[in-house]
Every structure is written in C-alpha cells, then in structure tokens.
Design a protein around this nucleic acid. Sequence first.
DNA 1: CGTGAAGCCCTAAACGTTTACAGTGCGCGG
DNA 2: CCGCGCACTGTAAACGTTTAGGGCTTCACG
Lengths: 329, 329
Amino acid sequence: MKVTLHQVAARAGVSIATASRALNGLAVSAPAQNRVRQAVADLGYVANEAARSLRSDRTLTMGLIFFDLRNNLGIELIDALSETIEAGGYSLLVASARADKRRYDVLMRRFLERRVDALFCINPRGGAENLPLYADAGTPVIALFAAGSAFANLPLVTPSFSESAAALAADLASLGHRRVALVVHEAKSPPLLGIADALKGGGLAVDWVEASEAGGMREAAAQLHALNPGPTAVVAIDVHARGLLAAGVRAPETLSVVAISEIGVDAKNRKLGLSALVIDPHRMGKAAASAMLAWLAGSKPAERVLVQAASWEPRESVGPAALAAERAV
Amino acid sequence: MKVTLHQVAARAGVSIATASRALNGLAVSAPAQNRVRQAVADLGYVANEAARSLRSDRTLTMGLIFFDLRNNLGIELIDALSETIEAGGYSLLVASARADKRRYDVLMRRFLERRVDALFCINPRGGAENLPLYADAGTPVIALFAAGSAFANLPLVTPSFSESAAALAADLASLGHRRVALVVHEAKSPPLLGIADALKGGGLAVDWVEASEAGGMREAAAQLHALNPGPTAVVAIDVHARGLLAAGVRAPETLSVVAISEIGVDAKNRKLGLSALVIDPHRMGKAAASAMLAWLAGSKPAERVLVQAASWEPRESVGPAALAAERAV
DNA sequence: CGTGAAGCCCTAAACGTTTACAGTGCGCGG
DNA sequence: CCGCGCACTGTAAACGTTTAGGGCTTCACG
C-alpha cells in the first residue's frame, strides 16, 4: 500500500539513486527520467518529507508563534508570511501562547524539536530561555513587535512611522496647524521620536506632554490647556487619544486629535471617527518574510529592519486649525 | 555541536535504547533514569522530530488549509483548532490557497508529502484530486463549510441553525409576526430547511420566495409584495438581505429583515443594523478539532457533525409586526 | 588503437530515532 | 543447588531519503 522510492526505482528499472535524482531535477538521461515519472504516476508515489528532512537536515518549515493570536493583526500577518515563504517552498507552523508566558517557552521548545528552519516571534514575552538553543542550532529567529523584550538582541522587524507621519504633517500644515502636542507615556521611544522628527520636518512646532497611565487624561488635558501658545492639534498613543475624547475634549472643534494605533485596536478608533497612524500588518509580514528568506540565503539582516508599515488615515477628528484657534482666543 | 541520542547515552553510560526509553517514560531503573536526565540537561539535547516521525510513522502535525484566509473567520478557527489539538501534542500547519483552486491542490499535495496526521479543509474548492491519496494513506480529513463540494462524501462539520433559529422565531412571534418569508437562492439546502422548521416550530407560517443571483432583488421584492396574505418579516442569506435594503425596502418600517450571515461577512451587516443569524467560528473549530482527535483515537465521526454554532443577534432591522401590517392595509 | 574527458548510473553509507529480540543478573521457590 | 521468572538493559535492524565515491560507456582526438 505504501509506496517508497525503492518501488518506484524498481518499476522504472533504475537504481534508487537515479530515481531520487530524477525527482530532484539532477542530471539524468531522458529515457530514465521518463520511466521514473511514469512509475511515479503509476504507483501514486508521494515523497516522504520526514525522511528527506532527516537526511538533508532541513524541514522546509518555518514556525510562527504569537503571544496572543486573537487580534486583527493575526490574520494579515499569517497571510503575508505564508504567501511569501511558500514561494520558497516553505510551510508555516502556527501557534499561539494565548497570553501565557510559560506557554511561549513550551511552544518554542516544541518548534525546536520539530527543527523548523526559521522562527518568527510575534510580540514575545517569555520564551527567552530557549533563545540560546536556537542560536546553537543556527536557526534564524526574527521578532516582530518585540520592543524591550528579551529578544532585543536579535533582528527585529519594526514599523517605522517616518513616511506616514510626514503625510500627517503635510495635512496638518495645510489645515493651518503650526503647533502640535505629542503626548508621551514615559520614555520617548524611537518610534515617537521618529514621529516628532517628521512633524518638525513638516514645519510644525512640537510640544511634549507627559501623561500618566491610561485613564489619567484629565491632567494631560489640563497641561495642554496651560501651554502658551497652545497647540491646535495633538498626537497620542491610541489609548491616550481615546482618553482625551473621554475626558470631554471635542475633536476637531476644540482640538484636532490623532491616534497612534497599536496592534490591532484600530477598529475602536475608526468607530469613534478618530484619525490615526495605523500599522498595516500585511506589510510587516511581507518585510519579515523577505528578510528571513534572505537570511536563509546567507545574508543576515540588520539589527533593526524598519518597515514603512504605517499609513496616515485622516478621519473626522482632524479639522482646520482655525476652529481650535478661535477657542484659544 | 549537534547532540544526538547517541551522545546522551554515552554520557549517561547507558545504551541508546535505554536513553530512548528513559525519555519516553518506559520502564527504566531509577538511577539510569536520572543519569539520562542529567546528560540531557548537560548537553542541551533536543530530540529530532524528523527522525522520530520517520521511524514511528506519525508526525504529530495536522494541516489546515483555507480556500481564503482573509476573513474574520480565520483567526477564530485557527485559535480554536490549535488550542484543542495542542493538548494532544499536535502542531498546526496553516496555509491559504488565496482563492485559487489550483493552489488548493498544490497545498493538499504538499501537506500529503509532509505526512500530516490529519487535515482540516476550510471552504474547499478544488483539492479533490488529492482526496483519494489521503484516503489511501489513511489520513483523516474533515471539511468545514464545504456545502456541495467534492468533499461531500467525507465527514463534514456543519453549523446548525436549529437553536438560533428557534430563538429568532420566539422573538418574531413575540413581536407579533405570524408569517415569514424565506428567500432561497435555488436549492433548499439543509441549513435553510432547518431554519424553516424552527420557524414553523415557533408557530410562524413560512413562505418560500425564490431569488436569482445576488443583485436581482428587485423581483424578489415584488414577489414579496404579491404574496397575500403578506409576510411581515423576511429571512435571507446576507447578500440577499442587503439586496433588499438596497432595493429600497425600509426595515423595520415596511418589513422586518433578518440575514443569515455567511462566513466572516457579518461586519457589513452590523454596520447596516441588519439583524442576523451569525456563525461563531470558534465553536466550529472546537467541535472539528474534538471530532478529529476522537477519530485519531479510533472512532470515526458521523458523516455530518452538526454544531450549534450560530447565534441570533437582533439589531435595528427587526421590529413589531404592526408596522408592516399597516403598510399592507 | 590508446588516452582522457564527460555522462550516466549504481552501490552503499549516512541521517537520528524506535523497538523487537535476546541477553544478563538476581531473587526465590522447589 | 537448580531452574524459573522478573526487571532491566544492550544489540541491531528498521524507517525512506540524499549523496559521495567510483565504475562503466561512449566519444573525440591524437
């Protein structure tokens, strides 16, 4: 019932070695080639990937581990990654730690045993204990959305806001805005700095405003009020942007508000008509997959792969500066 | 650098067979057990799943193929399936044909070579050519959302509307409706018949109305008008339900409208305030995975596995029958 | 005709496990 | 003291490929 290369070879009247070569497109005489093909068809031969893997030490499989799969990001990422790597003959093993750090370790271990040729880690927490083992095995690992994690010392694919923020700056400027507040949560992270640079590059003045954790936006709103000259627009992580609205700020009448959308939460913003810089996970996936294929082909990617994965999506919460200016008077 | 069972055995001072047994929990003396464990830890041994697969003829891997991954359904399905099968030690290989029939064949072939222990096919079109090969190999295949496809003769996991439609019937009845039209596209499929039964069970009279392909809802609307006594509510596949609205039917003023949501398109309905029977893919996944595990454990599932995976979600498009009745007068 | 090169093909050895089979040593009942 | 059973362990043969190494033909050229 189960047919192996042996049987194919026998039926084609060649050695098993020749049969193998024929199937792999190596040099084989035309008649032999044909007889092997015929035998394969006759017998319904299906190659055994496990045996191939064992012998050749590659599984043609990549792993993809999520810290949590359940957000809008997941689908697009899987779609983009699988599309790109399939072209190289790879398949994708997918798993989700369901927000459990220890489970992340387990999954990384499991994929290690399965000898994946490469691994993508999404938003990893935990999992660090197995990282050295991957290094030992020479298995490339790329992390996405891994700011500040234990994965920081391997290639990270990170969204860059520079282009999208430049578009935002242009729009704001053409609406008459001259002064923008940037609400930070604590550290001025590289992405935020990038946004600030882009705004400045667009001719806007930038005020930094510090906000405590989510919810405490009343003080931040007060701080904004206190600024003189006051900004006519504000850019903030989406939880903060929503906090401003919740605190009673009316956009765009009193202030134009722009959110920086984190992973997979833009749907809420959209419902509120909140303008946003939103990350397109599909582009992230494409970039990560390409970097990985290149890596497997020999060229290790840079420590940081910046992807222009964000777009500027203006919605109702942004309007002419004039409105806000009136309020100020 | 790479450490095999040989080396572990050597360091532990036992034979390779004993080492293997120790790791698989078979009978081994306590001291040997410990020495092996120690050696594994010291050397950082990681089992090679490819070798294990080759020898033992199971890969502990299941395949999941989508006709098209890009809909809301995907994530929930992957999440539910992977959660359930991971408990049994299985991993999930995921792929999407991206709406290309031939690609579906390719993927099924690829997973066959990878010797997956089981396969889930979502909404398959094409792929039929490889089905016999799976049968030959004795690899179980379960299809989801596969109405009328070539996969019809293997176990199908199908959503059942009976419970949700009963809830719908109860709501309609309490709103004073007595007569409901059911718009069909051509065949009266089992799910539709199930809905009709549930409506009748709730004390409602059911009129069948035939509609041509998507878009041609104007005639269907006319047919509805022509009915005497006229129905005060209508239930239809979501494309038809939206078609009715587009054709100028005002819900719930002139007619209460309920959509039967197909895969992953409910978001549109929600935006229109269209009441719907919507399928929860998570429940479908759980059920399919459980059925598969049971199958691998020896008990083949029934030809049709009916899952109560739909819920009744009333929204604005449903109202009291009185309104529609007035119009009729 | 002799020599070398080029094609093609085969034999056989890996790859790292699991597992059937055959010991080995030991305790215990006869 | 013998033999038997038991608990453990070792030897070796698989599983289905890929691939290095070498042998055989054929052909061109001197």
